[in-house]
Amino acid sequence: MSKYKILAVVIVLVCVIVSSAVIIVGYEKSKELNAYQTNLYLRGNGSAPVDVLSPSTTNSVSGSTSDVYRIVIPRIGVNAKINSETVNGYNTVYHYPESVEPGQNGECGLLSHRTHYSGLFRQLGSLKVGDQVIIKDYTVSKKYIYKVTSNGDDIRWDYKENPISFAQSGEPRLLLITCYPPGRKLAAYIVHCKLVSTTSLT
C-alpha cells in the first residue's frame, strides 16, 4: 500500500473519530438542555403532561406525602392518607407529583381506584355540587376545605391522546380523578373542586 493510501486511511479514521466525539458530546448536551427545559416548565405556569390513569411513579417531583396529608370526603365516607409513591397503595389516595401541593395556587390532582386496592373513589359519582372535600395538612397544622364545583361534566375519553397538564397558578383547585366506567380505564372521570377556606387543625 502506498504512503498516500495509508495517509488517506488515517485521515478517514481521524474524521470518523472526531465526528463520533462531536455526536456524543452533542447528544449529552441535548439531554442536559431537555432536562433544564423540563425543570423550567415544571416551575413555570404548567406541568408536564401525564397519563392520569397510569401515572409514572418513578420520578417524584415533590417527594412522598405519606403521613403529611389526609383526605376526608364526608358524603362518601373517605378518610385516607395521601401519598406520592404509588397508585396502588391500600387505603391511600395518590397525589400527582406534577400537580401542586394541597392548599397551593393551581391544580392539585388526586387519584384513586374504584374497584381495586380498597376502591376509595368507588362512590365518587355520588358527590354533589357544594359537597365538602377536606385535606388535612399535618406539616403546618392546617385544614383545607374544598367544595365540589362540578361532577360528571368532565369525562375524558381521549385522556391518552391528550394528557392532562396540571395548572401551576391561579386559584387553588382540586381534581379528584378515577377511572370510567368503574373498573375499566376507558376514560378519566374528573370531579372539580375549589378551595373555599383554610382553618387550623386544632
Rank of each mutant, 00 (worst) to 15 (best):
I82A: 06
V68K: 07
P163Q: 13
L111K: 02
S64T: 13
V133K: 05
Y69M: 09
S165H: 14
R122S: 12
V140C: 07
V78P: 02
R70Y: 06
V87T: 14
D137E: 01
Q123V: 03
T139C: 02
V61P: 02
V100P: 00
N83K: 00
W157S: 04
T115W: 06
A80T: 14
T92S: 13
T178A: 03
H116G: 02
I76V: 13
R70D: 12
I177M: 03
S60F: 00
K128D: 12
L175S: 10
R122P: 03
T86S: 12
A167Y: 06
P172C: 02
K128Q: 15
E101M: 06
W157F: 06
V61M: 05
Y94F: 14
V140G: 08
G106D: 05
Y159R: 04
Q132W: 04
T57P: 02
S165N: 12
G106W: 03
S126L: 05
D137N: 06
N88Y: 11
A167I: 01
G106K: 00
G103F: 01
G152P: 12
G125Q: 07
Y90M: 10
S150I: 12
V93Q: 07
E85Y: 05
G109D: 04
E85A: 05
Q104M: 01
G63H: 13
Y146D: 05
S126D: 14
T57H: 06
I145Y: 04
G152N: 10
K128M: 10
T92W: 08
K136D: 14
K81R: 09
K81L: 13
Q123M: 14
D158G: 02
V140Q: 15
R156N: 09
Q104R: 07
V148E: 08
K160F: 05
T65N: 13
K81N: 14
K160P: 04
W157H: 13
I73G: 03
S169W: 09
G77Q: 12
P163S: 14
G152E: 15
D153I: 01
G77P: 10
D67N: 14
V93R: 01
I164A: 06
S112G: 02
Y138S: 13
I135R: 00
N162Q: 13
K142I: 03
V148G: 11
D131F: 10
Y69G: 03
D67C: 10
C179S: 05
Y69I: 10
L120A: 04
I71C: 05
N162A: 09
H113G: 01
H113A: 01
S112D: 01
K147N: 15
D67V: 06
G109Y: 00
S56V: 08
V87L: 08
T139N: 08
I134H: 05
S150M: 08
K160E: 11
Y146S: 07
N59S: 14
T149S: 11
P172Q: 01
G63E: 11
P102H: 03
A80S: 11
S62G: 15
R122W: 04
R114W: 01
R156V: 09
Y94P: 06
P97H: 03
